[in-house]
Amino acid sequence: MTYSYYPGCTLKTKAKDLDRYARLSAEALGVTLEEIEDWQCCGAVYPMALDEIATKLSAVRALDSAKRSGRDLLTLCSACHHVIKRVNNDMLTNDDIRLKANNYLKLDSVYAGETKVVHYLEMLRDTVGFDKIRAAVKNPLKGRRIAAYYGCLLLRPAGVMQFDNPENPTILEDFIKAIGAEPVITPYRNECCGGYTVLEDKKIAERRSGMVIGSAAAKGADTVITACPLCLYNLEANAHGEGAPVVKYFTELLAEALGVK
């Protein structure tokens, strides 16, 4: 299986681990990730206003690139996935946005939401299958107690993201089981880490992330995993003190379990 792959800016800089281990693991699982050419930053936040067109265009370019190569578009960073998936939904369902975006871009053929956007985790679940991953694991992470942290961007709004049950997701817990560890469920796994407000007021992220980490620690998690560089940053910045879990990208643990780290 070959995917068009959209890594995004952060994965080329501060979140190289997220990207590197994803590529290594994909290879080990027989999945080819072909980075699309000339991708641009997705903008990191989905522009919610109906009259925001220009801010959606880079996502459309990536989507159109995948369409031209006839492949599904695979994403990894939660923010990129969120933006690209939602813009794709606009292109599919909103006549006004579709018309204006195509007027701007003047593509060879009109882009109307044809590309399927797949998150790396969805690829693991739906294409590879967790059973196959379990079989491919060389170093099961036995004894590790891992709390999944979904954050906001993968799950919400569920109607568009179609990722998992937004209030009781299971994909990361199933992933954790597949790599041989024990999932720890925390009530704050789908509550915000504070996000970009860290630039406005650090205390907001401190309170939000402190709660997430505190809850994971109280439930005996040694590790918290995420798919989002900003979540990782906020959580890590607030994971101090004795018994605080380490925060890792899920791909790192996957690579570790598959023996390709």
């Binding site: 995004g8 800016c9 952060t10 800089t13 501060k14 979140a15 930053c41 903008g43 990191a44 936040v45 522009p47 801010t55 960073c77 923010a79 996000g195 970009y196 860290v198 630039l199 406005e200 989002c228 560089p229 900003l230 990782l232 940053y233 890590e236 910045a237």
Partner: peptide, 27 residues
Amino acid sequence: HMKACSVPDSIDENMPQQAIVSAFRKY
């Protein structure tokens, strides 16, 4: 709300690009 000149004071070496881009888009 957020001016480019104020950004260097709000960031540190670990902060991902995603945070800065998001904040610029929002602010």
